[in-house]
Amino acid sequence: MIINSTELQNNFGKYLMLAAHEDIIITRNGTEIAKLTAVRDASTENTTMMEQVREKAQEYSSDGKKATFEEFLELQKESEERYEYIDGEIYLLASPKTAHQIAITELFGIFYNFFQGKKCTPMVAPYDIELRRSQESINMVQPDIMIICDLEEKINEQDYYKGVPSLVVEVLSNSTRRKDMIKKLDLYMSCGVNEYWIVNPENKEVTVFLFEEKNITNNTTYKNNETVQSYIFEGLSAEIRRIFRV
């Protein structure tokens, strides 16, 4: 990731957290002047979720070429496959495995019951969410689960939602690990999502991030017999044993 020195000074906490996942190159007047990078202990081999960001996980299906948003929409129209569009790159969404789908099913059931009679609505993929870093920088993603609290106000005439979910859940797979833990974390944080759950079936862990003013202000990892707790929805919780029952 490349940022200028002013952006680093204004959002140091955000980029300090992101540096645990990838190197941050700092520029001044267009010239690279420094690099913010994580300290890595070569003598230990921890397998926690946050450290797996450093693995050379297979990039989820992308040819690495930049495309316009219009080209992405045209591809979507012509294909029956599912795609996402993040920072100019088009990604094919692969078919998920059983543990991935069970985690989604369990969490959606918990969310559905919790939000009965409340304003917010849980939604499940496939469901396009359009996120803008700026007026020109448009992204299109399909989170595994999302909690939407302004559905009625943000539905357009074509019946598409054009707001920002309050809470987003992504369930990791080997092919999406790097995307979900780096690219999507930054995208959701930058575009106004308040809370992000990263669900890891391999390690049977859930990490919950709280975003405020486009920065990470808190995060907690839950595992073993613990119960995941939402930061923004009081009383919303999920037992780890129930999420990962296989």
Rank of each mutant, 00 (worst) to 15 (best):
S173K: 04
A99P: 15
A19R: 06
L18S: 01
V199I: 03
Q58K: 14
V169K: 05
S230L: 06
V199A: 01
D87I: 03
N4M: 02
E157K: 11
E205N: 10
T105N: 11
E51P: 02
N11C: 08
T6Y: 08
G163R: 08
E80S: 13
H100P: 13
S43N: 14
N218H: 13
N29Y: 07
M181H: 00
A19I: 06
E80Y: 10
Y85C: 03
V164Q: 07
Q52Y: 08
L8N: 05
I138W: 09
M1K: 11
E106I: 14
E55S: 09
N219V: 04
K204R: 14
T27H: 12
L73V: 05
Q229D: 04
K183F: 00
P96R: 05
F12S: 12
G109D: 09
L187I: 02
N200D: 15
V53G: 15
S173W: 00
N215W: 10
M181C: 06
N10D: 10
R28S: 14
V124N: 02
K179E: 07
A42E: 09
D144I: 05
A94F: 00
I104C: 14
C149K: 07
Y161H: 07
D41K: 01
Y222W: 10
N156E: 06
I24R: 07
C149R: 06
K35Y: 01
E157V: 11
E205D: 11
E55C: 11
N215L: 03
T44A: 03
N4Q: 02
K154R: 12
D23N: 12
M49N: 10
I145F: 06
C120R: 05
Q142I: 11
Q52V: 00
D128F: 04
L73Q: 14
I198P: 04
E213A: 13
I216L: 06
K223F: 08
Q229M: 09
N224E: 07
Q116D: 06
R245V: 00
D87C: 09
R133Q: 00
A99F: 05
N219Y: 15
N156M: 07
N139I: 05
S237C: 00
I147Q: 04
Q158T: 13
S175H: 02
E239T: 05
L151W: 03
N113E: 15
C120H: 06
E202C: 06
D87Q: 14
I198C: 04
D87F: 14
N11D: 05
M49L: 15
G30P: 01
K119A: 05
I182D: 03
I3G: 09
E55P: 02
L73K: 15
P143L: 06
K154H: 04
V206P: 04
N29F: 02
L185C: 06
M140A: 14
P126K: 04
T176C: 02
T98M: 09
